[in-house]
């Protein structure tokens, strides 16, 4: 597989064409739930995502919805992340966020940790992206929006 094909894995191309969670959902009024929204822009390329998160009173992610526009890497990454974090508790979301950042710092080598890669699931498809320094920020855009929307929801302070 060429490095280009390593970067554009089929799972990434599929998520880019058929994204999960795309289309913002109104989450304002579920009793006891906390909701947060974040708009993130990558100023160098204009990629953007607006993401809403809905957190249960028990501190797990009830739902993620988003709107965005940008390259296939940024849009597929939000989509994969959405699949990954729905239903997860906030400690698990924080762990996945850390693992994904580690993956993006791996310069194409991956995490060399089977348990960690299992946890990341489809997100390990982005290993090839980490060989391209200019594209890492594309893959991280959605994760930044998730972290910020969780902070804005107030869920991080109470968990």
């Amino acid at each position: 597989m060429s490095t280009l094909e390593q970067m554009y894995q089929q799972v990434i191309l599929d998520h880019a064409k058929h994204p999960v969670g795309r289309g913002l959902v109104d989450v304002a009024s579920v009793a006891g739930h906390l909701a947060g929204e974040s708009h993130q822009v990558n100023p160098t390329c204009g990629d953007e995502v607006t993401l809403r998160v809905d957190v249960t009173p028990e501190g797990s992610v009830a739902g993620v919805s988003w709107e965005g526009q940008g390259c296939s890497i940024s849009q597929a990454s939000v989509s994969v992340m959405t699949s990954l974090v729905e239903g997860a508790d906030l400690a698990e979301v924080a762990r996945l966020d850390g693992l994904f950042h580690d993956l993006m710092s791996s310069r194409g080598k991956g995490l060399d940790d089977d348990a960690a890669e299992d946890a990341l699931g489809d997100a390990t498809a982005f290993t090839g992206v980490s060989q391209y320094p200019a594209r890492i920020k594309c893959a991280l855009l959605g994760w930044a929006a998730l972290k910020d929307s969780l902070a804005r929801s107030g869920a991080l302070a109470t968990s």
Binding site: L4, M7, Y8, C45, D47, C71, S72, I73, R135, C138
Partner: peptide, 10 residues
Amino acid sequence: GVHAHDVGQV
């Protein structure tokens, strides 16, 4: 159907 970044990468 293809974002500019993806064009540039190819």
